[in-house]
Every structure is written in C-alpha cells, then in structure tokens.
Design a protein around this nucleic acid. Structure first.
Length: 255
DNA sequence: ATGTCGGGATACTCCCGA
C-alpha cells in the first residue's frame, strides 16, 4: 500500500500537475495540503475521474487539506482539537483499510518572533497533545503532511542561514522532537539515516536547479506501522515539471 | 534585501502569504 503526501500550493492552479502525478505513481492514498480553495471549489469531479474518493476541508484563499483514496474512506475528524476559535483549515483525518491517516499543514510561522510564530508553536502544542492520544490508542496511525520543520541540520542545504527562521528555530525543532519522543517514527529518515533528502525547493533563485532544498514534509508512523514500513521516497522529478508546486510529493509503502 | 508563485481584491495591477 502506497501512501503519499503532496503540498500542491493551489489545487485548482495545480490540477494538471496533480492529475499527471496521480496517474503516473498511482498512490493508494494521497494527502494534499495548501488547497487554496473554498470547500465548494474543490475539483471533485476531476479527482473522481482519476479514480479517487476524497474528503477535504477547504478555505478561501489559504490553507486547505484533503485526503484522496482509491479505497473506501471514512472521515474521522477535521480541524485540530484544542482551540475552538481556530478557523484555519489545517487538519483532516480519515480511516482507510483500518489505518487512521492524519493529514496536516502546520503553520509556517514566519516572521519569527511574532504572532505568526506564536500561532505555530500553539498549533504544535495542540498537535502534541492530540497525537499523544493517538499513539497511545494502539491503533495503526499515520500523521503526515507539511510540518514546516526541518528536524535536523542534514535537512537544510545551509543550516547556518536558517537558524532564525520559523522552520528551523530551536523552539520549532524542539517541538518536533518532543512529538517524535511519544513513539512516532520519521519514516523517511529511518530508512535513510544519512542521506540528504529534500521535499521543498523555493521558487526563488533557481533553488531547485541548485538543489538548495529543505526536508519539511514528513511521515510519522505509530509503533505498529513501523514494522510494516518497506520503502519511502520523494518524487523529486515532479518539482521540475512546468507549473509545478514548490514542494515535491513524498511517499511510503507499507506491507 | 532579494526573488517567484497562486489567489483575491479591485480590475487590466496591486497585495498577501509562503
């Protein structure tokens, strides 16, 4: 079973690229972030014609998350618990073939320090609280998506330039490692402990051509899924396509 | 500081967020 995550950066503007990638790689499940579309403007028909069921949580202009599945899918949650005043569409969860799949778009947090960074850390705290319940539930769970965190120095092309950025500040990395400490497995890093692997390249300054990238899209697996992890990778070539996202799709395969 | 996108507002060019 292949499960993928892809920050599309605009699901409608990106539709040809998204459909081309789905057709080429045929993931069983695809988690999408940054739909940048209100609920009613999700391209449900095109997605269905491509062979996918879908649940999604849209929002006008920004954010928005979706889970596509070739198999039966049941939505189990939308919106991250812990703050009823939070109106940003950054979390959706569903069950597919007995696996609970959380799809998240963690706040960017720049500029830092400031209110956006505060929101990022608060959102992270809520995620840590919620994920603790999931990891203790003894159910097979995946939490994947755009975490907007480079966990370690190997995940940044020039770490020294990013130490004050919201994606790499000590508070951000500490939160990610606190989350991992609950018992989650960073799937890609576990299979490739020493490889330089990026999932995002800025649109600026020919970042992709220079391979000036970041690893910020992650798969976290609960303990019982760790044993079933077989492969993982990044569809890096998709970042080189015309009219492409600034992220590349990331995927895992489970036994 | 810069750069480049998608989306949306006011609209044929700007700003925001990333």
């Amino acid at each position: 079973m292949r499960i993928a995550t892809y920050n599309v950066n605009g699901v409608n503007g990106r539709l040809p690229v998204l459909l081309r990638w789905l057709n080429e790689t045929q993931p069983d499940v695809a988690c999408l972030q940054e739909l940048k579309a209100p609920q009613e403007n999700f391209p449900r028909e095109a997605i269905a014609e491509a062979g996918y069921n879908a649940v999604w949580h849209g929002q006008k202009s920004w954010n928005g998350v979706a889970i596509l599945s070739k198999h039966d899918i049941v939505e189990t949650g939308r919106g991250l618990p812990g703050d009823p005043t939070d109106e940003q569409s950054r979390y959706i969860e569903a069950e597919v073939k007995g696996i609970t799949i959380g799809c998240l778009y963690l706040p960017n947090g720049n500029p830092a320090p400031g209110p956006k960074f505060d929101y990022k850390l608060q959102w992270f705290d809520r995620l840590i609280t919620y994920a603790d319940g999931l990891v203790k539930s003894d159910k097979p769970v995946i939490i994947t998506g755009d975490y907007n965190v480079m966990p370690t120095e190997i995940d940044v092309y020039k770490p020294e330039r990013w130490v004050d950025d919201a994606l790499f500040r000590p508070e951000t990395r500490a939160a990610f490692h606190k989350l991992l400490g609950q018992g989650w497995t960073d799937a890609v890093r576990t299979l490739y402990p020493n490889e330089v692997i990026y999932t995002f390249w800025d649109y600026f300054r020919n970042a992709y051509g220079r391979n000036a990238g970041l690893r910020i899209d992650h798969f976290l697996l609960s303990p019982q899924l760790k044993e079933k992890l077989q492969k993982a990778g990044v569809d890096k070539h998709v970042r080189g396509w015309e009219k492409t996202s600034d992220h590349a799709p990331v995927w895992i395969e489970l036994k």
